[in-house]
Simulated assay, not measured.
Amino acid sequence: MPKVYIDPGHGGTDPGAVGNGLQEKALTLDISLQLRNILLANWAVDVRMSRTTDITRSLAYRTDDANAWGANLLVSVHINSGGGTGFESYRYPTSDAATVNLHNALHPRVIGGMRTIGGVTDRGLKTANFHMLRESAMPAVLTENLFIDSVADSNLLRRADFITATARGHAEGIAAYLGLSAPNPPTFSTIVDNTTAGRFTASTNWGTSSYSAQRYGADYRFANPTLASDSAWFKVNIPAAGNYRVEVRHPADPGYNSSAPHVVVTASGNRTVNVDQRSSGGVWRSLGTFGLAAGDRNLVAVSRWTSSTGYVVADAVRVTRV
Rank of each mutant, 00 (worst) to 15 (best):
I111E: 10
M132F: 11
A128K: 06
N129F: 00
V141M: 01
T99Q: 12
T121C: 03
S150M: 01
R134P: 05
I148N: 04
H103Q: 14
R109T: 11
L102E: 12
G118F: 04
H107K: 11
M114D: 09
L102G: 01
K126Y: 00
D122Y: 12
H103L: 04
K126W: 00
N145Q: 12
E144H: 06
A140Y: 09
S136L: 04
G112N: 02
V141S: 10
A128E: 10
D153R: 00
V151K: 11
A105H: 00
A140P: 01
M132I: 15
N104L: 12
E135N: 15
L125M: 15
M132V: 15
M132A: 14
R134G: 01
G118C: 07
E144T: 08
L133S: 02
P108I: 09
I111G: 06
G113E: 01
G112K: 06
V110D: 03
G119F: 01
L106K: 10
V110K: 04
R123Y: 09
G118I: 07
R115E: 09
N129R: 14
N145V: 04
M138N: 00
K126A: 05
I148S: 03
D153A: 02
L125F: 05
G112F: 07
N104R: 14
T116Q: 15
S136P: 00
M138H: 04
G113I: 07
S150V: 04
I148T: 12
A105Y: 00
N101S: 15
L106N: 02
I111Y: 10
D149I: 08
D122M: 04
V151D: 12
D153I: 02
A152I: 09
L133I: 00
L125Y: 02
V110F: 01
L102D: 05
A140M: 04
M114L: 13
H131W: 11
N129S: 13
E144A: 03
G118D: 08
G118N: 10
V100A: 14
N101E: 15
I117D: 07
L142Q: 13
M114G: 08
A140R: 08
D149E: 09
P108V: 06
T127M: 02
H107P: 12
N104K: 13
A137K: 08
T99R: 07
D122E: 05
V120E: 06
T116L: 05
G113Y: 03
H103S: 08
G113T: 01
K126Q: 05
V100G: 06
H107M: 12
I111C: 11
L146Q: 14
F130P: 00
T121F: 11
H107D: 11
K126F: 00
D149A: 09
P139Q: 12
G118K: 10
S150A: 09
F130G: 06
T116H: 01
D149N: 12
V110H: 00
D149P: 06
I117L: 06
T127G: 07
G113Q: 02
A128H: 07
D153T: 06
N101F: 11
P139K: 07
L142S: 05
R109F: 09
R109E: 12
P108G: 10
L146V: 09
H107W: 13
E144Q: 11
K126M: 00
I111K: 05
L125H: 01
V110N: 05
T99Y: 02
E135M: 13
P108M: 10
T121Q: 13
